[in-house]
Design a protein around this nucleic acid. Structure first.
Lengths: 236, 236
DNA sequence: TTCCAAAAGATAGTATTACTACTAACTTAA
DNA sequence: TTAAGTTAGTAGTAATACTATCTTTTGGAA
């Protein structure tokens, strides 16, 4: 529960706030209007033009500030990407906890986990200035770039990938609950998370790498994964 | 067999040559010394400094030519990446055909396919100027960047991802041979290919996402995948 | 042997990117 | 009221990702 700093009431609405690793930023973007705008508009802009074409200059123009203004919050665009991707994984972990709370059967929990990861995202009203639908698509097409870098080791030592690992660990624990004898719970968990996103990317962009090309039906990804996972751990 | 242009004798040695999609380059790098050096040294340089830090300037210095010289062969560094990644997938398809030739049992073929994809690569002497060991590591850590781009659709229409798709299709066919009733052969095939590489990347860089962190033993990735795949298609 | 075309090489230039450094303005606290 | 700290804006720079042009080399046909 490390990352879920607080859920609180304000103006009659329930808000979700996630505590982010401080090494990700120079100044906490949640604390100022400009900071929140940087997050909100970078999600929109990365979604719109893609991460390679995304620059702090373009972002600054979009939110009516200067390049230097953005650099005061984030050292570079790669750390900003990790910030929003981390936010997404922490949010997914929160969703998993929320939806499996009081569920007793580990099989039901595991199925829920797969469903949550492989079903289209609708915007979460309890997170102002973050559009989860766009974020989901960014993670799908740019997410891997957060760790596919020369700095993986350095970033990993700074715990920048903790949210992803936490989510993976939690799913691995559910797998172990289902079948304590299964030998590869962590690898199976990372396979679920990865495939939920990359099968969806393939379906949209390289359909012949999947069996869902014609229907473009996300529900089939869930069916594929549920079948694979439960066959593998030999539980029904 | 589209991509395997020729295997031929020259100076008493057997060489393997792969026919590449002409839209990848401006001038065929296989036809000149400079072209072959571009391929050979770009594999070394990308492996050494990573794809983001890799530039045509640095490459030109390394092989003793000018930036403009490299630009005569490749429009940009992204197409050069796709070239070498495509080469890798075509080579893997060739290896698969070679090693499953005359094998009757589809289960044996499938197991061989998984083994070939998830076992460390030793340099193939029949391919001069290409170091497969380095190439394997590049595909592991940069391969996804070839299709994680705004141009996926355009590149896909130009058939630039054909080698990957062909390999996927071939593995899917073996899966169907094993169990004609299994519903998701293509998705399972792309899962095998993806996971063979990304579990290996995780093992090296983010070990807690796998169950092989301590041993760092690639053979366990194979065991994990073989178990998962055969459980899923319900054949032994 | 000469002549031609194509390839390679050298040089220079441009717009953009990814920053850094400095300065001006504004706020707060003594 | 003034000194100190905070914040934003301006102006630069080195590197990147190209393009354009001009010269030299080379290999083959006339």
């Amino acid at each position: 529960m490390f990352y879920f700093a607080e859920t609180f009431f304000a103006d009659m609405d329930l808000y979700l706030k996630i505590r982010m690793n401080e090494k990700l930023f120079l100044r906490n973007p949640e604390e100022t209007e400009l900071g929140k705008n940087i997050i909100r508009y970078s999600i929109m802009l990365i979604h719109e033009i893609g991460f390679e074409a995304f620059t702090f200059k373009k972002l600054a123009v979009k939110i009516g500030t200067t390049e230097a203004g953005v650099y005061r919050y984030f050292e570079n665009k790669h750390l900003l990407l990790i910030y929003i991707v981390d936010w997404y994984w922490a949010w997914q972990e929160y969703r998993l906890l929320f939806h499996t709370n009081n569920v007793k059967k580990p099989e039901t929990k595991l199925k829920k986990a797969i469903t949550l990861l492989s079903t289209p995202i609708v915007d979460d009203a309890s997170t102002p200035y973050i559009n989860e639908t766009l974020l989901y698509e960014i993670v799908m097409s740019e997410g891997a770039k957060s760790y596919l870098t020369r700095n993986v080791t350095e970033y990993n030592e700074a715990k920048l990938f903790k949210p992803y690992k936490d989510l993976c660990g939690r799913i691995a624990d559910i797998i172990t609950e289902c079948n304590p004898k299964y030998k590869f719970p962590r690898s199976l968990a990372s396979t679920i998370i990865e495939m939920a996103h990359s099968q969806s990317f393939y379906m949209k962009n390289l359909p012949s790498l999947t069996d869902f090309g014609k229907s473009k039906d996300e529900a089939k990804i869930m069916t594929f994964l549920v079948d694979m996972v439960f066959s593998t751990i030999k539980v029904l």
